[in-house]
């Protein structure tokens, strides 16, 4: 069966690409520290030696729309084109494409449907920055085949937090039951506290630093129970109006396992939002040779 070689949870800050490639007067003062943290984060994926990436993200009204909105959707295509005009326009993101791992997509769709997740699917999916940002930060070569999985954290009514955790657990189990010898990294991106289009946007920090501190602690300790006790669809309005993206972090906690502490934990306090990076190595930390 396939091996889950890493579980990775990250924010997906669309400004990283522009900040990290800017030079001279255009380069923001925080860019060097940000790049240093990203390069250390990238080393965790490189050390895990993945063959395939399962990429969990959320379409930002690019291809998925209110006339036909899935809650959870799996891409099943040989190729995925990447990034959209309005992401080039606002963030300077480059266009590229990624190969698809259709056999794993098919396996996840079948196993999900058989186990109670009525997963939607797409045979022609142009992926957006929720998936391309972690490619840019973690695997800029963009040379590995992917299975994209989109969650609805954006267009209410949304699935509740516990459902995201359950889907994360199920994704982990489905990858581990894939009849293949390949090494699979499960990578998902979301947000900590975030406000978009509201009065608290673009402040000197994220809109709720206390929520961010507690969120990093839940994730770093794998405290699924503590997180689920406090986080509800209603409570997520309080830290910022786009904070429901935190549920993709909860999905990744489900994939990592209850009570399993992360092997790599890092964060960066930026204007507008806090960045946070986590890696779990289910088979032990390849950087140290430790076996779990």
């Amino acid at each position: 069966m396939a091996t889950v070689c890493a579980v990775i949870a990250s924010t997906h800050h669309p400004f990283y690409y522009r900040a990290s490639t800017a030079v001279g007067d255009d380069r923001p003062p925080f860019a060097d520290a940000w790049v240093e943290k990203i390069e250390r984060f990238r080393e965790t994926l490189t050390a895990a030696r993945p063959d395939v990436l399962v990429m969990v993200g959320s379409d930002h009204f690019h291809q998925l729309w209110l006339d036909n909105m899935p809650q959870f959707l799996v891409g099943k295509a040989p190729t995925y084109d990447a990034n959209w005009y309005n992401e080039e326009r606002e963030f300077g993101l480059p266009r590229f494409h990624l190969a698809g791992e259709e056999q794993l997509s098919e396996h996840i769709l079948r196993q999900g449907l058989d186990s109670g997740f009525d997963l939607a699917f797409s045979n022609e999916l142009r992926i957006d920055h929720s998936i391309t940002c972690p490619i840019i930060t973690l695997r800029p070569e963009a040379d590995l085949p992917i299975v994209p999985i989109y969650t609805n954290i954006f267009a209410p009514p949304l699935p509740p937090p516990w459902r995201f955790v359950e889907l994360g657990r199920q994704i982990r189990a489905m990858v581990e039951s894939w009849p293949s010898q390949q090494r699979v990294a499960i990578i998902g991106t979301g947000h900590l506290s975030l406000e978009l289009g509201g009065p608290r946007q673009f402040g000197p920090h994220g809109p709720d630093p206390e929520f961010d501190r507690r969120a990093v602690d839940w994730i770093a300790r794998g405290d699924v129970t503590g997180c689920l006790e406090e986080v509800t669809l209603d409570s997520l309005h309080l830290p910022g109006n786009a904070t429901h993206g935190f549920m993709d972090f909860m999905l990744m906690m489900g994939a990592a396992g209850d009570g399993v502490p992360a092997d790599h934990v890092d964060s960066l306090d930026l204007f507008h939002t806090m960045e946070a990076y986590f890696t779990w190595f289910p088979g032990g930390d390849p950087r140290t040779g430790a076996v779990r």
Binding site: P156, G198, Q201, F202, F271
Partner: peptide, 23 residues
């Protein structure tokens, strides 16, 4: 960021709960 900050400031009179965005 000047425009983004002004955009937020124009909404500063609002407090939680924000208007429901469910469709």
């Amino acid at each position: 960021l000047e425009y983004q900050k002004a955009y937020g400031a124009a909404l500063a009179h609002l407090s939680l709960p924000y208007p429901d965005i469910a469709t």
